[in-house]
């Protein structure tokens, strides 16, 4: 492949992912509302389009038509920059997540991942840590006490939970002996899913992912009863939409990461034993990846509408006194597995 072909193929992949992602985010908002309605015995949005399917577009247009208000006391530059940091981080992370195995298309070998970097997991961790800046800047630059409190809470929370998140990932890395997401997925062949091999690590990772994405029960940065709107209190119109988008995009990333690291990524156990042809296998595998991600997304929403919010001290207690030791315990467990079974 010449350099131009590589560039064009990459651009096509990027375009596909971005468009798909934007659509998914739009419909995530729709499903969030629908699921919350179902859980509360309601019907949910059903007026715009068939079963309310055009609701996300109505929401987006409404947001974009609003007046963009910047508070007088705000630091204008940072106030504008913050949502873009949040968005950039949310979008850039998709690059390293493998959606499916390598396929042959028009004589080209195409990896179903935008960038198969060998430090993919580190890249994701680094970028999601940068996401804190978006929220902290938003909180600080708004010149409002509620925003500031939200921003400070968020940074404290994300830093605490990043520790246990990192240590849970260490267990995965020990087993796959690689930082590349593709390798990690390949290492989970058959039923060797990390969720089954290291359940403690799975639980700590999922809980930390909830905290990282600021979703309930850990959505303290935007706890409405206490902080009005949290870090985005002073945002409106497109900038608010940016934060909104970033939150849901982060949720998708978290689900994809959980799928990749713990649920065997695009793998379907023993599908190669069935003797299906190549194309069908790949399609099924991509389908499996999307299904697993969708299930995790549903789980995120399901939890949001079931479990009440933690108090702030409980959140910190849980992070440092429970999740952190548990993730350490998980590393020991994985080490024992490797020692005993020579995995």
């Amino acid at each position: 492949m010449s350099i131009w072909e590589v560039i064009i193929i990459s651009l096509i992949k990027i375009l596909l992912i971005v468009v798909l992602m934007l659509l998914t985010v739009a419909y995530l908002v729709y499903f969030e509302r629908k699921i919350s309605a179902w859980i509360q015995n309601r019907k949910g949005p059903n007026r715009v389009g068939w079963h309310g399917l055009l609701q996300p577009f109505a929401d987006v247009f409404k947001l974009l038509l609003k007046e963009d208000i910047v508070p007088e006391k705000a630091n204008k530059a940072l106030h504008t920059l913050a949502p873009f940091i949040a968005l950039f981080v949310a979008f850039a992370t998709y690059a390293v997540i493998p959606i499916g195995p390598t396929i042959e298309l028009f004589g080209y070998k195409i990896n179903l991942v935008v960038a198969d970097v060998n430090i993919g997991v580190l890249y994701v961790l680094a970028l999601t840590s940068l996401g804190v800046y978006g929220i902290t800047f938003a909180g600080w630059s708004s010149g409002s006490k509620y925003s500031l409190l939200g921003g400070v809470r968020s940074s404290a929370q994300m830093i605490s939970y990043e520790v246990s998140m990192g240590f849970s990932i260490a267990g995965v890395l020990l087993l796959s002996q690689s930082l590349s997401p593709t390798k990690i997925v390949e290492a989970q062949y058959g039923w060797m899913w990390n969720a089954i091999l290291q359940p403690i690590g799975f639980i700590t990772f999922v809980v930390s992912a909830f905290a990282e994405t600021n979703r309930l029960p850990f959505d303290l940065p935007e706890a409405e009863p206490e902080l009005v709107g949290g870090y985005h209190t002073e945002y409106s119109s497109f900038k608010f939409a940016g934060f909104f988008l970033a939150e849901y995009a982060n949720m998708i990333i978290a689900s994809m990461m959980i799928t990749t690291l713990y649920l065997g990524g695009y793998q379907i156990p023993y599908i190669d034993k069935l003797g299906l042809n190549q194309t069908l296998t790949v399609l099924l595998q991509v389908g499996a990846f999307l299904f697993k991600t969708a299930f995790m997304l549903f789980f995120f929403m399901w939890v949001r509408w079931s479990i009440p919010r933690f108090r702030y001290d409980q959140l910190m207690n849980l992070g440092w006194k429970v999740m952190f030791p548990l993730s350490l315990l998980n590393i020991v467990w994985v080490a024992v597995l490797i020692m005993v079974f020579r995995l």
Partner: peptide, 24 residues
């Protein structure tokens, strides 16, 4: 926490399939 959380999740999952009370 985990057993209690699962209990809560099962409850909400059951609720999702109950008839809706919304009056249009």
């Amino acid at each position: 926490y985990i057993p209690v959380i699962i209990k809560g999740l099962v409850l909400t999952l059951k609720t999702m399939f109950k008839p809706k009370v919304t009056m249009e």
